[in-house]
Amino acid sequence: MVKILHKKRLNRKTTLYELDLPEIAARAEPGQFVILRVDADGERIPLTIADFDRNKGTITVVAQEAGATTRLLSRKEAGEELAGVSGPLGKPVDIDRINKVLCIGGGVGIACIYPVARAYNDAGSEVISIIGARTKELLIFENRMRKVSKELLITTDDGSYGEKGFVTDCLKRLLRRIKIDLVFTVGPAIMMQGIAEITRPLSIETWAGLNPLMVDGTGMCGACRISVDGKMKFACVDGPHFNAHLVDFEELIARQKMYQKEEKQRIEMMSKND
């Protein structure tokens, strides 16, 4: 069992949890994730480690209510326990000092890009960040991102905050005025695909943190398989970060939707039981 030490609702859809996991906190590196189960018979879901505190022995995860399990999770309160968490999983991001790094986070992906941006900043790189959400209320981690970025650009689809439009629009404008050495992005697959299409012709190295479905998270099942440069890769052990120019995003997007019908069915069942 894993204790929730702290819970904070970031907006109506998104919740932050600080979990009592000293051993995972001791080992966690930027870009890694955990597999979490809310209750004993629960699904195993991957969540990026958004933050970790080795002294306090805690890790932070941020979950957006999307399916049945994240809804169940959102009902757990501080002081309560989760059935289990395993990790830290996946390969950490190899952090070198890079001249100018651009970190782009979309939606709940901002929480995933944050530890990467922070690590690049700590390594002495110049970090520029773009964060975007559908609307102002859904924008998370603004202050955290501001602290680790030399320049922070914000977009909302509806223009309720920052620039109106997508992070991709903002990226195009930014690239006209600044030379970027490396782009790192986490967010909806379609957003990462859009970013890859913009940076590809400019030959800017671009890495994307992918978020396919997973079960075990240790390379045992292959549920998270994706195509990178035409080769089959398991995101859980080979990634989750890959050269965005080589990722088959169409395939990733289709595979993410595999259980949409079942998710609906389960949510309906939960709503009936409420």
Partner: peptide
């Protein structure tokens, strides 16, 4: 994956259990 979903995660009891 198929057997893990069914045996470990008990997907044969879906939607009573969460894993489909």
């Amino acid at each position: 994956e198929f057997l893990t979903r069914v045996n470990l995660m008990k997907a044969y009891l879906f939607p009573r259990v969460a894993t489909p």
